[in-house]
Design a protein around this nucleic acid. Sequence first.
DNA 1: TTATTGTCTTGATTTTTATCAAGCTCAGCC
DNA 2: GGCTGAGCTTGATAAAAATCAAGACAATAA
Lengths: 232, 232
Amino acid sequence: MRHDEIEEMRTLPLFVGVASTHVESMLRASFLQRFPAHVELAREGDPADFLHVIIDGQIEMYSAYRDRETTISVIGPGHSFIVAAVILDRVYLKSARALLPSRVLLIPAEAVRRSFGEDAAFSRALALELAGAYRSVVRELKNQKLRSSLERLANWVLTHDGESGGTGRFELPFDKKVLASRLGMAPEVLSRSIAALIPYGVKVSGRAVEISDMGALTGLAHPSPTIDGTVS
Amino acid sequence: MRHDEIEEMRTLPLFVGVASTHVESMLRASFLQRFPAHVELAREGDPADFLHVIIDGQIEMYSAYRDRETTISVIGPGHSFIVAAVILDRVYLKSARALLPSRVLLIPAEAVRRSFGEDAAFSRALALELAGAYRSVVRELKNQKLRSSLERLANWVLTHDGESGGTGRFELPFDKKVLASRLGMAPEVLSRSIAALIPYGVKVSGRAVEISDMGALTGLAHPSPTIDGTVS
DNA sequence: TTATTGTCTTGATTTTTATCAAGCTCAGCC
DNA sequence: GGCTGAGCTTGATAAAAATCAAGACAATAA
């Protein structure tokens, strides 16, 4: 890594309050790597060699079983992944692939575990990070177990609109195929569910989404603070 | 709490390596409470007042949405719950009820957060605890999204047999109704799925389960280390 | 003993979701 | 312009799961 890149990485939220000697030692051992789209960055079942932090781009976390595959999440700049596997020194539970060309900081697991053991601020930052991640998955599990596919879609639209300014207009951040998998349904079901939202004032054409009747959509979606809550 | 009870609590895995002044200060503020069966110990949406540690008994973690309800997990002695909500100072995402008469250690959230901020060993213990919990939920989410109900049941039987000695015989640890909800299916579907396991050598009568053809069951279940793995 | 209650099972049916098979649309390209 | 192919949609059908409605069964109380 170049010196200016190291300076850029120092400011990562993961490192705030962490002794600079520890940040230094982790970053010295790290790589800042570019990945073209469609490339696989980690495969489930492999030992966790690196903590990954997305600098830019977009990464899909997914998992396969038999002849099936599902998207667990799609994450962007600032997010780190496989923290849990790294600090427990276990195998990855998910695979990761780049949806867009991406730059990712790779911090060797060994260095992370050393700082985790030596630096209290860092171990606290990781604990908070993990607590947030834990709550996200719990929400997602509830979303899956308690809602129908139409409800999941309606709530996703609502949440995503909220996250992108609440203007009632936004662009899908990735392919519908990926969205379908993320929401836990077949692509055909997503198509039909999108059509089923028309009476509730949601118009989707291509990647453009437009909500014209927020009340009707909210009535269908029944958003819940303990499933959709915006803060961890 | 009585003095001998405090001594008993000191040995909790959560406290190993933690400065005894901190353990002391948390325990002094804690309550050891008995709950009869069927009682609700925490309700989703409420602010996290206490970190709960199960001393004995059995607790169901569940969640409701509209007129539906689902069991997230059923946990026993030694397990703590709502760690994430406590350290982030957020609202519970799940409710908890006693399935059996239970004794639970209640540590005030405030005390936990103080020790978390001051004691590195404790914050590390919490981070590891959270990392394990995170991985469990990820596994469960994959289980839900990637498997059919029959596969989920087959794998649960296999895993549970493994956890109870691998003898091919065990007792269901709770009602079938709860198991159905835990596995994400209606009770009627569980009944039929149990019947569907007969050709694979699984016999269930009342709470007694007997596996006579481990090979056939394994062939149906397709257990995967990244979903069913016994260690975190 | 009989009555009662809750849990579980079974059958019939509906709803939800997945799958299979064409088609459509549109950007990129000759 | 027309061709191509990926991504998406639509229709028909099948499979999976939920729901509704009885009953069976077992434990417990009267």
